[in-house]
Amino acid sequence: MMDPIFPPKDSMYHRLNPLCMMLWSLSVVVAALVFDNPVYLTLLFTATVLVAIYAKVFRGWMSYMKYCIWLCMLIMLLNPFFSHHGTHILYVFPFNVPLIGRPEISLEAIAYGAGMSLRLLTIMSAFASLLYTVNPDDLLDSLTRFRLFPKSTYVTSLAFRFMPALIRDSDTLTEVQESRGIRLNSGNMIQRVKARIPVIFPLLSNSLDRAVQVSEAMESRAFGCNSKRTFYKNPAIGGLEYTILFLSVLTVLAAACIRYVGFGSYNYYPSLEPITFTFEEIPYIIVFTILVFSIIPLAQINSRGLR
């Protein structure tokens, strides 16, 4: 039996109205795009990690994030080869590399790669926290209630629903080829791609078969019978949840305001700026921190029924 991608859990975040997690995650993503300063990005990332921990989904969150960590390491590794704006040169390659010339690895380029990786990690972490704390059916319901992309949301929801089946199919097809004595991971790139054809074609065919069967099942259960639909579950939304929604909107506004007044930026080139805060900036940071982290105590109060 395969683990579902979104195993049902019971935590204060799972009990929140799905809109709260949706809007909070969106506010973190927007703020991560607005700020360059690694301190602000670290704050945002820490908030998403704490949510994953308190929501008891850290293991699943980590399994998702480990791929992002590899991607970030790749970014940090490659960026110095293509960015030559830094002034602190750590190493100069003794030979020319086609297309990029003679690479000079600078401290600033490595730091810029790290900063961008932190931004990427924060965005991915916000999505991971959302996906692991909100049932995809709830997401679907929420978007359908507001008549937002109803067909696209169904397709997305079904894609998530059948992801475990697709992974299982892929594993079985790989085993079939291994059982035939085919080495899928040996040889040059062309040989590897050729060896994968017997995995990819049946995977596509099976997915098409599945799509037909799913459509039959939907049709047989009156899908699309009416332009509107009703909802079995009507997630409650109380005062505290409205507060979380309000504070999420305020987080985005605060981020825009902080950038507007000239804080939250950071220059990596030509030399790394020292990370210091002026006396005027500290209240902004405190307010922003309170806004981003407010979901944690509020969700706890909400789960205790203190609406």
Partner: peptide, 14 residues
Amino acid sequence: NQLLMSEVEREIAF
């Protein structure tokens, strides 16, 4: 391939 939702009771309500 005929179960469309991610929870049994929601499947039944669909």
